[in-house]
Design a protein around this nucleic acid. Structure first.
Lengths: 369, 369
DNA sequence: GTGAAAGCGCTAACAC
DNA sequence: GTGTTAGCGCTTTCAC
């Protein structure tokens, strides 16, 4: 048994002994008799002891070094480095309310629209010393609600990308923690909106010029703001030039969904397809290929989001969406808001345009006309 | 001044008055007069007051309801629901050491190999009531180190996917918190390994059968275990059948990297290309198309990971990698470990095979031979 | 410039 | 079965 450790409670025998045994309340094999703290391997108290100062001083050395003598700061920092200290944000948050965490919630991280967005958010957050939680709602509003409420006690703010939640719940969340929306337009909230109308106007004009008079729109999820915008913008543009639009409901955007929609597309008699996104469009391409229907000879296909680059077969004409740019704008909005609570909730709009691929133009006068 | 509140310290006057003042230390514009607690809007103490029980009882009603009378549990839960209570995991962690968080760290979330993996991890974690942090190291070992150390005080464990960190630092991390590796083989650590040899054997046999005798391998990042494995497995298989392999170093896998490699590929005189992953292979396809070189007539291309489905042009022959399956296995390993600390670190292997696309077989006898 | 003490929200020995 | 008390790691008045 060790003797002579005068401290009121012996915090931690020594670096080696530390880290060896179980958690409070559990009787784990006590053979070694060692145990590390519930959370941090090295705490402010450890540093205080080594540096010969109080815990407050150590704390200040990190958060308000200007309050301390340079000498002290240096000594504390040295001790911290030596011990390998890393701040416990959770504990800090308990007293400051600042977690140093934000959350990004998406409907489906496997949908190629979102990874570039998430990546930008993560990068900017990291630069501002925030860590990021990722929530994947699987396109389900209630799961999104669970995620956000679960997370709200650990984050300072949210980026909700294409949220499926109803407006009411989003407003409630925003009342708790600052929220930045991507592709969802709620008055008074910070939001980044990708406006599809520019790209769709061009797409419709393009199709019209090529002789198409009837197109089918393969929709996205009902809850999707983007889908609503695209639908509306398409109808407006089509009406203007005298093109007829038939909508085919698809729900969750997926390649198989697009493939399975081919039957309906052909039955509709349309000569061109505009898909909710590139993933769906790619499925359509695959489905058409299976039936031996040639694109663009027999039918034209246009996607949205420009997520598949020129990788499809044939290379897909699409409408740009700039998801990374949206992620960047969202992160900036949120971080600025966290840095300055008084900042008003801004609204950022991102324009789109038609991207016609060089290799093959998916839009052509339909042979069946 | 309020009198008669016998408690040693007055916790909080009442629900309305609460939230009425500024953040500790900050003098915020008090016009609205509203302000919530540093972290949670409603705490265990609030519930205790409403339900007329002690805070411990409230706590127990959630963590160990079987200790309490059904009546009490019910009353507490009712009060909690009414107030809209959500547990503060950070505070809980401070006393239990259990955060209810895990972290997934990837080199590049925009690389299509990772989203399905991350998604599976997130889904399984969610089911076990864990929230997940996402770290994107941008392929940089030091950033990965920062992320993991930053996060280690808020998570119970890590999934490190294709980590770029050196073995030593990974071991140190694992000593702090359980780590599960994906595509990195470190003895004694839990890991999920996708074994490329099956698929590469098939690919090489396939190419050999078609008459190819010289292939170029477009490598991945040096730090990548997967790349090392693929390189080695390819060399073994090639040697066996008498095919010559030229390696072209590429670093970070990207479509543009693949496209820019085309010059070197052509100069090498090889008749087939095996790329580190599908993204690179797609870039090669694009680069070849730009030069008017036909695949598979003039040269054959095979990818890895099967991340682009049949969306490339022409549809890409590739080697399966099952990133979702890897994510699932990794999550299971980690969650099992968290539920039972005594569990040994397992090693899971995932086999691969060659996926020859229906539309067009990218491997053919080279015309230039 | 630095230390003592209280407290963030929660859990867990230890009474009763 | 339930309340009391102490304490997780950190910050922050308030003294000195």
């Amino acid at each position: 048994m060790r003797i002579g450790c005068g401290a009121a409670r012996i915090p931690r025998p020594d670096p080696v002994a530390r880290g060896a045994h179980a958690v409070r309340g559990h009787s784990v094999s006590v053979v070694t008799g060692k145990r590390r703290s519930a959370t941090n391997p090295v705490t402010i108290g450890d540093i205080a002891r080594v540096a010969g100062v109080s815990r407050s001083t150590v704390s200040r050395a990190f958060s308000r070094p200007e309050m301390l003598s340079g000498e002290t700061v240096h000594r504390v920092r040295a001790a911290a480095d030596q011990l390998g200290y890393v701040v416990n944000h959770a504990a800090r948050a308990l007293s400051t309310g600042r977690f140093g965490n934000i959350a990004v919630v998406v409907p489906d991280i496997a949908n190629p629209f979102f990874p570039p967005l998430v990546r930008r958010v993560q990068t900017l957050a990291d630069q501002a010393d925030y860590a990021v939680f990722l929530g994947d709602s699987d396109e389900i509003a209630d799961r999104e609600a669970n995620l956000t409420s679960r997370l709200s006690a650990q984050v300072e703010g949210f980026v909700l990308a294409a949220p499926r939640l109803d407006e009411q719940r989003i407003r409630e969340l925003d009342a708790q923690r600052p929220v930045v929306l991507v592709n969802r337009d709620i008055e008074g909230l910070a939001r980044v909106l990708i406006d599809p109308s520019g790209g769709l106007d061009e797409a419709v004009a393009h199709l019209h010029r090529l002789g198409h008079r009837r197109v089918v729109y393969l929709s996205g999820p009902r809850e999707s703001w983007s889908d609503q915008q695209r639908r509306a913008a398409l109808n407006r543009a089509a009406e203007r030039v005298g093109i007829e639009v038939a909508v085919q409901e698809l729900g969750r955007p997926s390649s198989t969904g697009g493939r399975d929609a081919v039957g309906g597309i052909l039955a509709s008699g349309a000569t061109a397809v505009i898909a909710f996104d590139d993933v769906v469009a790619q499925g359509v391409l695959a489905g058409l290929a299976l039936r031996g229907i040639a694109v663009p000879r027999d039918i034209s296909v246009i996607g949205c989001d420009d997520t598949l680059a020129s990788g499809t077969n044939p290379a897909l004409t699409t409408i740009s969406a700039a998801s990374a740019a949206a992620g960047e704008a969202a992160a900036e909005l949120l971080l600025a808001r966290l840095a300055d609570a008084e900042r008003p909730a801004e609204r950022v709009a991102i324009a789109t345009h038609l991207v016609v691929r060089e290799t093959t133009d998916a839009a052509r006068p339909a042979a069946r006309e």
